[in-house]
């Protein structure tokens, strides 16, 4: 577990509109990489292209290479469903399946794919994943209750448990804390710190303090103006980005003197 991701001259389109242009990026295994930048600069779009969720939007497509440990994810014979089984994702708004119990939500990745597993295996997976998501102690007595009865922060950790239950190589997080209060945010940030022992994590965030707190590397995306494509301006170690970035635009953004 924990593989590297490498983008080479990646162009991402919505129909004929070029949304993100020329991304070259190497994400090292078992690190946390934060993507920051103003709204509409393409960081979420880039994130969603890593597990090929981007192409679910009609007309959306990607050019260039995206590699997972050297394996091209956009190759002609690559099944996007297979890609998503290796690269998990956590969304901005917690989205547990409302028809399923907490238990079933955690093993949804197996259950929905009709993977045969014994009861004890499933029990182990549920406990491991919920412990991994720091939720076990809060829900262990009510696993059969619906997942939508939990608080927002708990739901988001349930979604993280669901994502890590299928043991992905990479975990993508699209502003996972933007709908949460500071305490739940702290819980998730602690969790990210633990998860990087096993997983490669890419997180999109609008909160620069969060990027500074949780990430090893930070990538800054920027956009020159409306209608122009977003670009990766700079990717470096987080402390370098926040103390002595090489680009003027990055410095303006992280110091709040943007625009």
């Amino acid at each position: 577990m924990g593989k590297s991701v490498e983008a080479k001259d990646l162009n991402i389109y919505y129909g004929s509109f070029l949304a993100v242009e020329g991304v070259n990026m190497t994400i090292k295994p078992k690190t946390v990489t934060a993507l920051i930048g103003p709204s509409g600069c393409g960081k979420s779009t880039f994130l969603r292209s890593i597990n090929r969720m981007h192409e679910n939007i009609p007309g959306a497509r990607v050019e260039g290479r995206l590699e997972l440990d050297g394996q091209d994810l956009y190759g002609a014979n690559v099944d996007p469903v297979g890609v998503r089984r290796q690269i998990g994702m956590v969304f901005q708004r917690p989205n547990p399946f409302p028809t399923m119990s907490i238990y079933d939500n955690v093993i949804a990745g197996m259950k929905l794919n009709n993977k045969k597993a014994s009861k004890s295996e499933l029990d182990d997976t549920v406990e491991r994943s919920l412990r991994g998501a720091n939720l076990w102690n809060e829900v262990k007595d009510r696993l059969e209750k619906p997942g939508s009865g939990l608080s927002g922060g708990q739901q988001q950790r349930l979604c993280i448990a669901r994502a890590i239950a299928v043991r992905p190589d990479v975990l993508l997080m699209d502003e996972p804390c933007s709908a949460l209060d500071p305490i739940s945010t702290l819980a998730i940030e602690d969790l990210i710190n633990e998860l990087k022992n096993d997983y490669t994590i890419v997180i999109v965030t609008h909160n620069m303090q969060q990027a500074a707190r949780v990430s090893d590397f930070t990538g800054f995306f920027n956009i020159e103006g409306t209608g122009k494509p977003g670009k990766l301006v700079e990717l470096d170690e987080t402390k370098t980005i926040f103390s002595q970035p090489k680009q003027k635009a990055t410095e303006d953004y992280v110091s709040g003197r943007f625009g």
Binding site: Q86, N95, P98, N113, A163
Partner: peptide, 12 residues
């Protein structure tokens, strides 16, 4: 979001 959640788990 529910469809996306399932897709992201590698569900066809």
């Amino acid at each position: 979001e529910l469809r996306e959640a399932a897709f992201a788990l590698g569900v066809p």
